[in-house]
Write a protein that binds this DNA or RNA. Structure first.
Length: 757
DNA sequence: TGTCTCATTTTTTTT
DNA sequence: AAATGAGACA
């Protein structure tokens, strides 16, 4: 039964069989972390522990799924199926649904995603009459999130001197009030945001001794993956669940902690042995993934960080090639290089396409690379950009389901009340919301019965509202009786969502229709899968799952091996024979936002993660200029390149290519990152006026702008045919300055293909 | 109300 | 470049 233990090395085996009491497994990159977790679970099962007594928490859905599959392969699906395995969020959300009454929530609570949250915040800021420029929803949302991650309720927040001081410094004096109102609003909508799932889970355990006992007796063995990425709240929950047996095993690598922006606290892993006295420590230091050069290079990099748990990661594979660093003239050339490298690598048999991964710091970098891959006909797959469930039409469709199941869900209501158009406009909705908030009721209540809440709207508008309410209400019964798929089909048909998409003959309309069909298909699939396990599926079951799906495998049917493109964050836990890391430039990687040493160190860990994804070869690229936010910016090589010992690098690729721009318009750099108040005249206008010698139009209307760096001024062509100056860029594109004669006296700059002068 | 146009702003990573 | 916001106009 347990001969599989032979497949482990000594350190791994020790970590696997030491099941009683707390243990901390520090697992260097590529040292078989997942292996230890899966084998530990398999081992527990082989010792007669029931799968329903094991709780395994992971960071992503994908990790959970893969681990489950691996366990099923070891011990059979009939055990694996009953394991409690999933992300923190999904497991806790299931428990919270079960126990929702205890925290005074309805069973069918909605989970608000970050878009919903920001929208709520925006409304609150507006209603409080605050400046939206000052109180940016994203900023507010992240502060609230941090508070929740640290278990601070609005009341705690208001009582926290440090936070209040900090808010003052950021000129967010009403922060605490917004937090308070935000939570109230969510409660009213019977909704939780991502952080509430954790916050409330902790609350549930803290306030109910019986539940604490119930769940800690169910979860007799607890395993936590990626422990370095957990936040304070998560660690408290785990602590409560683990007691009194404390059969808890956490696995992680402090060197790979890259989620502090999400509240992850590296102290959790560093302080684990304080929280759980007598915890055993296991160190996995042998890397099975990468060649020595790669491991050594990564080690030399991470050594530049302070405050690590000492460990000595080593590889016993061959030395392998050095890491190839190359410089490129601009982002397009960089993309071209990447595509060619992959093409050649494939031809010379280094790997199939799916053996290559291109990693980058930001999603925005993927586009150019995609373009170049496509030019060479290389199949690729992008992970994690706009996921299927984030598309507008899908969110709209789901909002209908949400609203039917949970009529208090104001965000869902707002999304769909005028989609497809029903003649219910902004003004009406403004009034509805005002009325609802004043009466402390969900918006849907006002929509259903405007009279009762004395809504000040025209009779015609009121009729439209009640009509909409009737439509939604007519679905309510079906939601409870019908199968999810049948229900979804009905709703999309009767609300005309489907027909609206079908009527749209544009390419995007076609796409939208296909996507809706695909959504129906996936509901169908979901329902079928559950039927095979003997469970009926209602739409609420689907909703409970879908809101926590993010990267969800948009199951590609074809089996074509594809190159993977993703952010480094998304690449954590994966490995590829050949890894290409793009955009190693200051202001990009490390990100321009990383200022403090702490933040820089996190960026460095990110680079460490990127390098250690590679099994055999690693390419690192950077560009001298890059198109960013509609402007060309100049960049210098990342400081991180200097952090790797020279002996592991092959820097020959840096010498060939460099072309410094011959002529650089001085304003290109000086305009970058200038504060708005220092700009008396719109920058674009000034630029143009400077270059052309023309005066800006009287009303100082800004002008669309696009000057290429490294361009050479020749003459310009104006709309009326006069030629003054042209900008030639590296022989490929030119920019013509035009004088737009129709309408306002505005100046326009346009790109045009270059006919050689 | 809804649609179009023009201007401004955005800057990371994600359960 | 792309998304958001404001204002004009039908």
């Amino acid at each position: 039964m347990s001969e599989f233990l032979n497949e482990l090395n000594e350190a791994q085996r020790a970590a696997v069989v030491n099941t009683e009491g707390p243990s901390l497994v520090i697992a260097g990159a590529g040292s078989g972390k997942t292996r230890v977790l899966t084998y530990r679970i398999a081992w527990l099962l082989s010792q007669g522990v029931s799968p329903s007594n094991i709780l395994a928490l992971t960071f992503t859905n994908k990790a959970a799924r893969e681990m489950k599959e691996r366990i099923a392969r070891l011990v059979g699906d009939k055990y694996a199926r009953y394991l409690w395995m999933g992300t923190f969020h999904s497991v806790f959300s299931k428990i919270l649904r079960q126990e929702s009454a205890r925290i005074d929530y309805g069973h069918d609570y909605t989970i608000y995603d970050s878009t919903d949250s920001k929208s709520v915040i925006k409304q609150i800021v507006k209603e409080m009459g605050l400046d939206e420029k000052q109180y940016k929803p994203g900023m507010i949302a992240s502060r609230i999130s941090m508070a929740k991650n640290n278990l601070l309720s609005p009341v705690d927040y208001a009582g926290n001197r440090a936070l209040i001081e900090d808010d003052k410094r950021a000129r967010l004096y009403r922060m605490q009030d917004i937090y308070f109102a935000y939570n109230k609003r969510l409660k009213q909508a019977n909704a939780m945001d991502f952080d509430d799932l954790l916050f409330n889970m902790n609350l549930l355990l803290e306030q109910n001794e019986d539940l604490r006992e119930k769940y800690s007796s169910i979860f007799r063995y607890i395993l936590v993956d990626e422990y370095q990425d957990t936040n304070y709240c998560q660690s408290r929950i785990v602590k409560q669940l683990a007691e009194p047996l404390n059969n808890i095993c956490v696995v992680g690598d402090d060197a790979q902690s890259i989620y502090s922006f999400r509240g992850a606290n590296i102290d959790n892993i560093l302080g684990f042995r304080n929280m759980f006295g007598g915890a055993q420590l296991f160190k996995l230091e042998r890397n099975y993934r990468s060649t020595q050069n790669i491991v050594d290079a990564a080690n030399s990099l991470i050594k530049k960080n302070e405050g690590q748990i000492r460990k000595n990661v080593y590889s016993e594979k061959e030395a392998g090639e050095r890491l190839h660093v190359s410089a490129h003239e601009n982002d397009r050339h960089e993309g071209e290089f990447i595509a060619k490298t992959i093409q050649q690598g494939k031809r010379s048999g280094k790997a199939q396409y799916d053996g290559f991964a291109v990693l980058y710091r930001t999603n925005a970098q993927s586009r150019v690379i995609e373009d170049e891959l496509r030019k060479l006909g290389i199949p690729y797959r992008i992970y994690g950009s706009v996921s299927f469930y984030q598309r507008k039409e899908i969110k709209d469709a789901i909002a209908y389901f949400r609203l039917v199941v949970n009529p208090s869900d104001d965000e869902a209501l707002l999304r769909v009340i005028n989609f497809p158009a029903r003649g219910i406009g902004e003004t009406t909705m403004r009034r509805v919301l005002d009325t609802a908030h004043r009466a402390d009721v969900p918006a849907f209540a006002v929509v259903s019965d405007p009279q009762r809440y004395a809504l000040e709207s025209a009779a015609a508008a009121q009729k439209k509202l009640t009509g909409f309410a009737a439509l939604i209400n007519s679905f309510r019964e079906q939601a409870q009786t019908e199968d999810a798929y049948v229900f979804a089909q009905n709703v999309l048909k009767q609300t005309a969502v489907m027909s609206a998409a079908l009527a749209d003959k544009s390419a995007e309309g076609q796409d939208r229709y296909d996507n809706l069909q695909e959504l129906l298909g996936s509901i169908h699939e979901f329902s079928d899968a559950r039927r095979q396990q003997g469970e009926e599926t209602k739409i609420t079951d689907f909703l409970a799952e879908v809101s926590l799906l993010t990267d969800q495998d948009e199951h590609l049917d074809d089996e074509t091996p594809r190159v993977s493109l993703m952010t480094i964050h998304a690449a954590k836990g994966l490995e590829f024979p050949v890894v290409i890391i793009a955009g190693l430039e200051e202001q990009l990687f490390p990100s321009a936002f990383a200022e403090s040493v702490r933040e820089i160190e996190e960026e460095r860990r990110l680079f460490y993660v990127a390098i250690t994804r590679a099994e055999r070869e690693c390419y690192i690229t950077y560009a001298r200029q890059r198109f960013r936010n509609g402007q060309i910016v100049f960049s210098s090589p990342s400081r991180f390149l200097k952090d790797i010992d020279e002996q592991y690098l092959d820097r020959s690729g840096e010498k060939r290519t460099i072309v410094q721009p011959q002529w650089q318009p001085s304003w290109l750099q000086s305009e970058w990152r200038r504060e708005p108040e220092e700009r008396p005249m719109p920058a674009a206008t000034r630029k143009l006026s400077k270059t052309t010698g023309m005066q800006p139009s009287a009303d100082k209307k800004p002008i669309e702008t696009a000057f290429a760096a490294g361009s050479r001024v020749r003459h310009a062509t104006f709309g009326d045919g006069t030629v003054r100056e042209t900008f030639e860029e590296n022989g490929n594109e030119k920019i013509v300055v035009r004088f737009d004669t129709k309408g306002e006296k505005t100046l326009l700059l346009k790109f045009a293909k270059l006919e050689r002068l």
